[in-house]
Design a binder for these strands. Structure first.
Length: 708
DNA sequence: TGAGGATGA
């Protein structure tokens, strides 16, 4: 991502060799941070309390400074580490780099980061920044996280699934580490069992984490939860009234302005506000929060149109879209300075709320809406709806105006409407399919999922549905234990359980190579790039990839063609230019190069995993029938049959659905298909669809279809 | 007959 992480202000330090004046600058900067004045008190509180909540506003310096304070106070004695988790990869990386600079060490020495596909830590690393998802994976191998003396969970208010599971798990681990080893604890039994099973792959270091320490106590684990103020009480209560300390932030003031009356058309209101700012306010860029690509593109067009009605000298306003699916070269435009005399108006989704920080923003326009995903376990269907943002979100949005100078935030609704907003966004764990989480918990030895101590409990309906799904996929036994070996194997793979199942079956169908590619591509957000203005052109350019059998086979040929292309160029020996050449290939074929790279990373990682599991990565060659049969055997829960009127009926839920317009089968409409995703937007759409023979379902998933 | 908010392993 072309971005700075949230949290700490951009450093004034350049990427040059350390020198005296830079050292001085760093020291001065560190001393000037609000958190510097409370170092002693914080260390005392950590010593006194096993769990501490730290409420730190933006710019307090908590993320970069607290781990250094703890290190200096001796919390890394005896080779112990301090782990600091972040919800996002980019944050883990940028903060670690910054702290390494401050400590004057090479990244990977005392300070390092570890994220999926990129681990810079070594055996001397003591301050380890990482994503919370990665720490969860570590817990599978070392159920007591025994190498850590302190875990700091940063941005806990984010309430991502990973954060929530981690918070609950850490609570258990902390208790377990107070008990003598060998005594019954709530965690670790199954995990230990799994370690024994996989001892060879993990090597001697992981093996015997607990063995040979019988009767001895593990050292206690300190837990620090860092959060924004609105949610601090929730965490404190969850941890039995844990002590919370507040650290002052450092932000410039932001004037909040509300409308007098509700706006019936917030797009129009946003446009009026954009031009009002442009005509009347001091220089400084504008950031507008919109709900999606559609809105962003239409506002972009409308700004351009209205500019034409202004006198020449007033037309220096530059609308720039930014959202996740945009290719990175275009995302970069938001970060470039506007031409002299121009004012940028950034049209963004909530990507600009937390994930990226655009410099130069002085004005924020917040219509107060956001697109949010929900999940209906009964129908096995996700929805993407425009809903009011939460207070926490609107606060985060307005904060984007005060990072460099005092700013203004224009909320396009009356203040009394603000009061009605929810305090925080509903935690993700209450809005998603739980099958993956539950599989992880089972692998950690947690048997009673309904009774598990989540901060916010998912509905029992959602839990039961996920358990049933895992049972159907052969991950759980009839009495809810991990199936041996499939359940263990599936929990080890960093994939959705249904994809893991597909790999296990592909091993039997002799099409593992094909399934590895397919699963890697399905995992990434759309592999294609579809600019709205060039949809026809894109379709033509990609026509040679298309398979009449469906999207899965189409993705296979995209991946393989890119592979062949790379191989040819590699042989030609252009070396450094590979990246550039690949990007050109992607552009010509309307493939999103970021997604493709991501898919290749996933492919490599998963391939290693399955090889370690003893699978034989073989290809079915040109026998695509066998591959489609394997898809049917894997995705039998996601099958749909054409109706007389040309719509489809999803067999599991009975929902009437439509093939998504981006599918290669959108027009072909075969009699029976399997799909990857069922999501309601403007309609109930199935995405990533492949044709199958309806008879295969009863043949290949008899436990599910025979009786019908 | 017509379109994908953001993260992460």
């Amino acid at each position: 991502m072309p971005s700075m992480a949230q949290g700490e202000p951009r450093s004034s330090v350049q990427n040059s060799k350390p020198n005296f004046s830079m050292r001085q600058k760093i020291t001065e900067h560190r001393k000037s941070l609000p958190i510097a004045s409370v170092e002693k008190r914080l260390i005392e509180e950590v010593r006194k309390n096993d769990i501490l909540i730290i409420v730190g506003e933006t710019g307090s310096g908590k993320t970069t400074q607290l781990p250094q304070f703890l290190y200096n106070a001796g919390f890394c004695r005896e080779g112990k580490m301090i782990g600091i988790t972040q919800p996002r990869r980019i944050a883990a990386v940028t903060v670690a780099k910054r702290v390494a600079e401050e400590c004057e060490v090479q990244l990977g020495q005392k300070v390092g980061y570890s994220i999926r596909f990129d681990d810079t830590t070594s055996n001397v690393t003591r301050l380890k920044y990482m994503t919370d998802g990665l720490l969860l994976r570590e817990a599978l191998l070392d159920p007591h996280l025994s190498r850590y003396s302190v875990i700091i969970v940063d941005e806990a208010h984010d309430r991502s699934v990973h954060t929530d599971v981690l918070l609950a798990l850490l609570k258990k681990i902390q208790r377990a580490r107070l008990k003598p080893i060998g005594e019954k604890t709530e965690i670790g039994h199954m995990a230990l069992e799994m370690q024994t099973k996989t001892r060879d792959e993990n090597g001697p270091q992981q093996n015997g984490v607990l063995r040979g320490c019988q009767g001895r106590k593990l050292s206690p684990l300190k837990l620090i939860i860092m959060s924004a103020s609105l949610d601090a009480r929730v965490f404190s209560e969850y941890y039995g009234g844990a002590k919370a300390v507040h650290v002052q932030g450092r932000q410039f003031p932001v004037d909040i302005l509300y409308t007098v009356h509700p706006e019936s058309d917030y797009i129009d209101a946003a446009l009026v506000t954009i031009f009002q700012i442009h005509m009347e306010e001091k220089p400084g860029d504008i950031l507008v929060f919109l709900t999606g690509q559609d809105e962003i593109e239409s506002v972009e067009r409308l700004v351009q149109e209205r500019l034409q009605h202004l006198p020449e000298e007033k037309r220096k306003l530059l609308p720039i879209p930014i959202f996740s699916a945009l290719p990175s070269e275009q995302q970069m435009k938001a970060f470039a300075a506007a031409p002299p005399g121009f004012r940028k108006v950034i049209l963004a989704t909530n990507i600009a709320e937390t994930s990226i920080t655009i410099p130069g923003i002085r004005y924020v326009i917040d219509p107060g809406f956001v697109k949010a995903r929900t999940y209906d376990p009964r129908k096995g269907m996700e929805s993407l709806d425009v809903v009011p943002a939460s207070k926490a979100q609107t606060l985060q949005r307005s904060g984007r105006a005060g990072r460099e100078v005092p700013g203004k935030c224009f909320r396009l609704y009356p203040e009394r409407e603000f009061e009605k907003l929810e305090d925080s966004t509903k935690p993700e764990i209450k809005r998603c399919n739980l099958s993956n989480i539950i599989l992880q918990l089972k692998a950690l030895g947690i048997e009673d999922i309904i009774g598990f101590d989540f901060i916010d409990k998912p509905s029992s309906g959602a839990i039961v549905k996920a358990l049933a799904e895992l049972h159907s996929l052969g991950a759980l036994t009839d009495d809810g234990k991990l199936e041996d070996p499939a359940g263990y194997q599936m929990s080890r793979l960093p994939l959705e359980p249904i994809y893991s199942k597909a790999l296990i079956l592909a091993n039997q169908f002799n099409c593992l190579e094909e399934m590895l590619i397919t699963v890697a591509v399905l995992t990434v957000e759309s592999i294609f790039y579809d600019p709205r203005e060039k949809r026809e052109e894109a379709r033509t350019a990609r026509n040679h990839f298309a398979s009449v059998e469906g999207d899965h086979l189409t993705y296979l040929s995209v991946y393989r063609e890119s592979d062949e292309f790379l191989e040819k160029k590699n042989v030609a020996g252009s070396g450094n230019n590979i990246d550039k050449i690949m990007k050109k290939w992607c552009k010509e074929n309307f493939v999103n190069s970021r997604s493709l790279k991501h898919a290749r990373d996933i492919y490599r990682q998963i391939r290693e995993h399955v090889v370690q599991m003893g699978f034989n990565v073989s290809s079915c060659g040109s026998d695509m029938l066998e591959f489609r049969r394997c898809l049917a055997a894997s995705f039998f829960l996601k099958a749909a049959q054409r109706q007389l009127d040309g719509t489809y009926r999803a067999l599991e839920s009975g929902e009437i659905v439509h093939i998504h317009p981006t599918s290669v089968l959108f027009r072909a409409k075969p009699e029976c298909v399997i799909f990857d995703e069922l999501m309601q937007t403007s309609k109930k759409y199935i995405k990533n669809v492949t044709r199958i023979d309806p008879l295969w379902l009863a043949e290949l998933a008899p436990h599910h279809y025979k009786t019908e």
